[in-house]
Amino acid sequence: MGFEVLWKGNNMLRLLEGLWAALRISLISVAVSLVLGLALGILVSLKLRAVQVLSRIWLEIVRIMPQMVLLFLVYFGASRVLGLNISAETSALIVFSFWGTAEMSDLVRGSLAAIPKIQYESSYSLGFDPLQTYLYVIIPQIVRRMIPLSINLITRMIKTTSLVMMIGIVEVLKVGQQIIEANRKSSPNAAFGVYLTVFVLYFLACWPISRLSKYLEKKWEN
């Protein structure tokens, strides 16, 4: 069935390293998206016309364009149009952060919109300034609503990083391909075992995270 090839040499270790290459890109992008998304979401909630229009356009682009297309635009387009030579990994980080920031800001905006106005008014009447109001009153309240949703976004980002192989980054699928190619003679059926293993590895990376998200959502429902 082609599983034997996994125990040859350090093939399994190489697969895991490939998975880590993909996970690392998603984790960095997630971190960037969380910070920038929170800032953008608050900015949008201040209801400045220009900011609202721009963020709306940003969000629509991200919603309509497949991440794969965005990757192509940055990876192939930037060098052509801007004359920049951006590595595949940097392109991936730019695209996933661009996408994540937009989605995250919309989650923040939605959560902020759900906070009753009286929370702000009470806070001001107690003498808090707007910054203090956000820091001590509003943000702690939206965090609960946001955490399950952002964890959900994280699993989506992890799954989407599998696309980076299409712009030539060596991640788990690519390593799998290499292993299959190298053992073409000795294990002709390696494709079955290797791709099934990659399938299971992705599942093991995402499943616990989405369980956590569901658990927190239920726990913090009220």
Binding site: T155, K159, T160, S162, L163, M165, M166, L173, G176, I180, A191, F192, G193, V194, Y195, L196, V198, F199, Y202, F203, C206, W207, S210
Partner: peptide, 16 residues
Amino acid sequence: RNTPLLVQLFFIYFGL
């Protein structure tokens, strides 16, 4: 729900 389409396709198309 917890695996990427790309990986699913690789398994169905090249693995099966």
